[in-house]
Design a protein around this nucleic acid. Structure first.
Lengths: 153, 153
DNA sequence: TTGGAGAGTTGGAAAATCAAACTCACCGGG
DNA sequence: CCCGGTGAGTTTGATTTTCCAACTCTCCAA
């Protein structure tokens, strides 16, 4: 009766929820894979970046690849699992574009292979409809948990 | 030449990227809107929760609503803007379900109004195709920024 | 031989986190 | 009238993180 709700959101955030982690993923997805690029582009202090990179490599989201021996230098490439976090980045970006950017200015525009500017949408895989809050019903699977909290303790 | 990349992902994380903020959004979206529920269900220390709630209310993602005067008690309800972060929560959950939960166990199953279990997918609004990393091209709009970093400073 | 790059490490101050205890207002018995 | 309990925080003091600047170490190039 002391543990928080078991949840894949929390589990995922335990891996990528620390400050700068998702910005690192953003950069490596864009192709900025080197330490000094990550420092400049994310604004992370160098020591913090070091520990974030270690964590992301350990978690299998990045891999450290030598791109030059003599001098020995490494870059950080996203793994498939790392790239699969892109939907998270896209939905975060979409929300920020809509709610935070005044004047409709978008700091980054993404072009989809279909030829259009990408406006990401989250849909139900079965019916293809855009997912609305009102159309969802949650079913907690963990024993002792209901939608609002622990069952009558 | 010292600021990090201007980006809606970073802007959004500045609002909801601190520890527990997204878990609070998860809970209020589920219907657990009261202080003690949030403490139990997220695991946040009470004082931290207080500051997170203040921030989320100030940012317009939650609203504080009196549900009883005498004794005066408040709950925190998600605003429309708050609910619009659900796509982020859904994609985080999907990633965790796929990459972190052994044995395919899902701590939470969501049912869509169409009658099926929800498997969220991110698609391009124009063509409806699922978004793949390889199908994206990024176009930074901020002056001085390229896809890998600041332009030749 | 001096001067960069690039990729980190180190040191110490400042800020955030944590758990537990405490407050304050009220309610409902006994 | 007193007592325990609930709900929503606030306070306290110890522990962790963060932050930033400066430093290291390896190489290459002028």
């Amino acid at each position: 009766m002391k543990d928080p709700r078991p949840c894949s959101i929390a589990a995922t955030l335990a891996v990528v929820g620390e400050k700068y982690s998702l910005l690192v993923l953003r950069e490596v997805s864009l192709g900025a894979t080197r330490f000094d690029q990550l420092v400049r582009n994310t604004g992370a202090p160098r020591d913090v970046l070091t520990t974030r990179l270690k964590r992301l490599v350990d978690a299998g989201l990045l891999e450290k690849a030598e791109y030059s021996d003599r001098p020995r230098r490494y870059e950080y490439r996203p793994t498939r699992a790392g790239l699969e976090l892109e939907p998270v980045l896209l939905t975060l970006m979409a929300w920020g574009d809509r709610h935070l950017q005044e004047g409709g200015f978008r700091p980054m525009v993404l072009e989809h292979a279909c030829g259009h500017e990408l406006v990401p949408q989250v849909v139900c895989r079965e019916c293809g409809e855009q997912v609305e809050h009102e159309a969802l019903t949650a079913h907690p699977q963990a024993p002792g948990w209901t939608v609002t909290g622990p069952a009558a303790a």
